[in-house]
């Protein structure tokens, strides 16, 4: 009897959860489906859900008309570039704070966090003017630097929380074994922290990929990543639903997949270790 109740309950929960899950996911699903329709079918009323002539024309056209892959590669370059650059700066910093904490370490960490709280509009004008005057406007270099800087606090914090879980004795053992600082970081700390570093990498690629304030304001055509490219569909041209859907699907697919892998780390990274 009791078993039955639990089983029914489980069935009810499953149905309810799946219904809500599909509802939340539906806009994405619908976008993906629409990307395979012709423009006429995309705005047909009543809409067809699965029974339409599947076509790949939209994907081809998006690429041909607007050189989709250039924007895609821009996105890849700035998100990967800013993350790797950020890691190179953050690993030593996180090492310092995790393993040689001093009296001011906590203050430094909190201060770094506070830079993340700075609303971007507060510094929009100076950054825009500096970029304009130094020729960084609409360049991949400029965007990479800005994205690195806005995500640096998160990278440092994530690494810091991962490093703190590595027992200090192991690093001391390395020192006793004759390892200098460089050998200690390269041969011992980094390999041990690989899972943490990988999660940090993943989350920051996602954040950089989706960043849509600086990428929209600091690019025009040349360096525009996917965020800005998609935004160009907000003009009346965007009423070509099937093409908008194809472009959107290509823009979100890679990060959706990466994101699913990094769910757990996401919590830790975005709450600065306050929720684990």
């Amino acid at each position: 009897m009791a078993r039955n109740v639990t089983k029914n309950r489980k069935l009810a929960m499953t149905v309810l959860a799946w219904a809500i899950g599909i509802l939340i996911f539906f806009p994405i699903l619908w976008t993906i489906l629409t990307s395979f329709k012709t423009e006429a079918e995309a705005i047909a009323s009543p809409p067809s859900f699965l029974f339409f002539d599947w076509t790949l024309d939209n994907y081809r056209e998006v690429q041909e008309r607007s050189n989709y892959f250039r924007h895609f590669s821009n996105s890849v370059i700035i998100s990967l570039g800013s993350t790797i650059l950020g890691l190179a700066i953050a690993i030593p910093a996180a090492w310092s704070m995790a393993f040689v904490p001093g009296r001011r370490t906590k203050d430094v960490l909190m201060w770094m966090l506070s830079t993340k709280m700075l609303p971007p509009v507060g510094v929009l004008i100076p950054i825009y003017l500096i970029f304009r005057d130094t020729g960084l406007l609409d360049t991949l270099t400029g965007l990479t630097i800005v994205l690195m800087l806005i995500n640096l606090p998160i990278i440092i914090w994530m690494l810091f929380t991962y490093f703190r879980e590595i027992p200090g004795e192991i690093l001391e053992a390395a020192r006793m074994d004759g390892a200098g600082l460089k050998a200690e970081i390269i041969h011992v700390l980094t390999p041990m922290a690989v899972p943490g570093i990988a999660s940090t990498l993943l989350l920051n690629i996602i954040l950089a990929w989706n960043e849509a304030f600086w990428t929209l304001n600091l690019t025009a055509a040349k360096a525009a990543p996917l965020t800005a490219f998609i935004a160009s569909y907000s003009s009346p041209e965007g009423l070509f639903y099937a093409k908008l859907s194809a472009a959107s699907t290509m823009a979100i697919a890679p990060i959706l997949i990466l994101g699913w892998f990094s769910q757990k780390q996401l919590v830790r990274g975005l709450t600065f270790g306050a929720v684990k």
Partner: peptide
Amino acid sequence: VIAPFFVMPTV
């Protein structure tokens, strides 16, 4: 359920 978080805001 988590998917929408990874969709870029413009999309």
